[in-house]
Write a protein that binds this DNA or RNA. Structure first.
Lengths: 147, 147
DNA sequence: GTAAATTAAATTGTGTACAATACAAAACAA
DNA sequence: TTGTTTTGTATTGTACACAATTTAATTTAC
């Protein structure tokens, strides 16, 4: 077998986009075993995180927060509705807006999800200052690219 | 409309996984206009980056470098083969291995792709030291999670 | 030397992502 | 007003991403 070591992959390694892409996928993968217990996918999980916070929101707004469009959100929200965690209803004032509202069951799920962040955190061994710096740099890029 | 500002999204913002996930997607999106000119998707692009470097490799090996499995790579490689950028052939020594080899056309594509990194780089305004630190932290996480 | 285990790819099924399009409701303009 | 534009959501089509399964080839264990 030829060399599989990741030495002199200068081009790939020099791009910054690649470790970002790979790291994102690997970290999300670390969530899977814990989210499986809640029968949630990662996308459903981050959607519920917003719902726990906001309780009620429309799709556009949700998409701005999650950096997702209606093409992605519509099926996710329908799935979460079918699981009984939220309801979808057109706004009376403006029929274009779809109001997404969390249900009691949705709020109860928060209790069960409480330990997920810490459990995943155990898989990523960064010093607090490092995590903070990483956090700062990622948001600098995000803000910079202009939501 | 209710508040769409991303204030007090403490939960979402405190997770580190989320900015990683969002940032990865947004940066990849920045590649699209440039990759469109080459008729390459992002996944095809990073695959070609490895091929430009290695010239020949098997699928397993490629997957380890790109953090992708055969389920993702097989269709990508077939697509790149149909575009004439590489060939796929079982290894003589071990028929289980599929050798992926870059073609002359594949190598020629490298010339046209040369400017992509700098063009995307213009969209992300990090200081060199910041980029280096981000790079270091991402690879620390990746290495830490054990390829 | 053959059965069992392992390995590498491919296939299948589910779930994103997102561009492009469609469509209906609301805002705007002449 | 009535026609035009904009806006919010849904739909369609393409392309990942990955777990799980399958298949075929090689290795191993005995």
């Amino acid at each position: 077998m030829s060399k599989c070591e990741k030495d002199d992959m200068l081009r790939l390694k020099s791009q910054l986009c690649f470790p970002l892409y790979a790291c994102s996928k690997e970290v999300v993968r670390r969530y899977k075993p814990f989210l499986d217990e809640l029968d949630l996918t990662y996308t459903q999980y981050i959607t519920m995180m917003v719902m726990w916070e906001k309780q009620e929101i429309n799709v556009k707004c949700l998409g701005q927060i999650l950096y997702l469009d209606s093409g992605t959100l519509t099926p996710v929200l329908k799935k979460l509705e079918s699981k009984g965690y939220l309801t979808r209803k057109r706004s009376k004032e403006d029929e274009r807006n779809l109001r997404v509202t969390i249900t009691a069951a949705g709020n109860e799920l928060k209790e069960r999800a409480k330990t997920v962040p810490q459990q995943v955190g155990k898989c990523v061994h960064l010093q607090p200052e490092e995590a903070e710096e990483l956090y700062r740099l990622l948001y600098k890029i995000l803000d910079d690219m202009g939501l």
